[in-house]
Simulated scan of single mutants.
Amino acid sequence: MIRFRHSDAIWSDFPQLVPGVLFAEHARPSSDPSRYWRIAAERLAAGPESALPEIQAWRQAFTRMGLKPTQYRCAAESLLRRFRKDGSLPSIHPMIDLGNAVSLAFAIPVAVFDADAVDGLLEVRNATGNEEYAAFSGATEHPAPGEIVFADEHGRAHARRWTHRQSALSAVTPATRSVLIVAEALHATAATDVPRLLDALGAELPGSEATVLSRDAPEFRAKLR
Rank of each mutant, 00 (worst) to 15 (best):
M1K: 04
F4M: 10
A9K: 10
I10M: 09
W11C: 08
P15F: 01
P15T: 00
L17R: 01
L17T: 05
G20M: 00
V21K: 05
V21F: 00
L22T: 02
F23Q: 02
F23L: 01
H26V: 10
H26M: 13
A27N: 06
R28S: 02
R28L: 06
P29A: 01
S31F: 12
S31T: 03
S31G: 10
P33S: 02
S34A: 09
S34K: 09
R35T: 08
W37M: 06
W37Q: 08
I39C: 13
A40V: 02
A41G: 07
E42W: 09
R43G: 01
R43C: 01
G47D: 00
E49L: 04
S50E: 15
P53N: 06
E54A: 12
I55Q: 06
A57G: 07
W58A: 06
R59T: 08
T63L: 00
R64P: 02
M65A: 08
M65E: 11
L67A: 01
Q71M: 15
A75W: 03
A75N: 06
A76D: 07
L79I: 00
L79D: 03
L80Q: 05
F83H: 03
D86R: 15
S88F: 12
S91A: 09
I92R: 11
H93R: 00
H93T: 05
P94V: 01
I96C: 00
D97M: 01
L98M: 07
L98Y: 04
G99W: 03
V102A: 00
L104R: 04
A105S: 08
A105F: 02
F106W: 02
I108C: 14
V112E: 00
D116H: 15
V118Y: 06
V118T: 08
G120V: 03
L122S: 09
L122Q: 07
E123S: 12
V124S: 11
N126E: 15
A135V: 05
F136H: 14
S137V: 07
S137H: 00
A139L: 12
T140Q: 09
H142C: 05
P145I: 11
G146W: 07
G146T: 00
E147W: 01
V149C: 13
V149H: 02
F150V: 13
A151N: 10
E153M: 13
G155S: 08
A157L: 03
R161P: 11
T163E: 13
H164M: 12
R165A: 14
R165V: 12
R165P: 09
R165K: 14
L169R: 14
L169E: 11
A171H: 11
V172A: 04
P174K: 09
R177I: 08
V179Y: 00
V179T: 03
I181P: 05
I181L: 04
E184G: 14
E184V: 12
A191E: 09
D193Q: 10
P195F: 02
R196V: 04
L197F: 10
L197D: 05
L197C: 08
L198C: 03
D199L: 11
D199K: 14
A200N: 06
L201R: 04
L201C: 04
G202T: 06
A203R: 12
A203N: 12
E204H: 05
E209D: 11
T211F: 10
V212S: 09
L213M: 06
L213G: 09
R215Y: 05
A217S: 13
P218L: 04
F220P: 10
R221Y: 02
A222G: 11
A222L: 03
K223W: 13
L224N: 08
L224F: 09
